[in-house]
Amino acid sequence: MTSETPMELSQTLTLKNLAPGHSAVIVGYAECERPYRARLLAMGLTTETVITVVTRAPFGDPIEVRVRGYNLSLRAGEAAALILREIS
């Protein structure tokens, strides 16, 4: 179990904090390496795109998500590059 302080939760939502079955909207990108961001952008993880967590790997990481109708897996730490806003 990861320990998240309420502070972090209220400040920026990242994929790590999103529970399976929950969806969020991509608000923007935090600092990250350019090739990584370029690939995510090419794969359709652009601003205002809805991203849904499907499940996590048995070890808790990586995370399977659905975006634009297909399924993708990302590591929680690396996907912190995505700044999210939860939607109900």
Partner: peptide, 9 residues
């Protein structure tokens, strides 16, 4: 390399 893997149906 960063991990971005498509999971096909």
């Amino acid at each position: 390399s960063r991990f971005i893997l498509e999971l096909p149906p």
